[in-house]
Amino acid sequence: MVDIKTRLPTPEPFISPETRPFWTAAKQGRLDLPFCKSCNHPIWYPKAFCGACGSLDVEWRQVSGEGKIYSYTQVHRGEGPYRDVENYVLALVDIDEGARVLTNIVDADPASLTIGQRVRVVFHEAGDAAALPRFVPAK
């Protein structure tokens, strides 16, 4: 599938019972992350374990979906589902609650992007059970 507005592929992610809450929340328009109930650490990538303190006691919490660009690149040679995409922006975004996530920046002129720029999450449908969190420049 392809997101009509950005023309980017929206591959269906591999979903396991462990990670389903993340994708379900995204489908419903929320960015939820696991947090450790023992040490309050935000956990990325999503999983049912806190590597910071070794706890199995984690809970899903909604986060703001706002953050800033840590780094970005315009990829001209995609692979897999992105092989036929002329170019797209791959980025690492530091979301305000403390996770650094790999994503795409969409609806922006790549030449206008800067490290440190504020961005906010948008969601692109990816199959029946998930949506992909991507980011756009914040107003």
Binding site: Y45, V75, G78, L90, A91, V101, T103
Partner: peptide, 20 residues
């Protein structure tokens, strides 16, 4: 699952490092 859906490539990841 949290990376490949965004078109992650080896060169793309090292490009993020180079730009930073």
């Amino acid at each position: 699952p949290f990376e490949t859906v965004y078109g992650e490539t080896n060169a793309g990841i090292y490009a993020l490092a180079a730009r930073r």
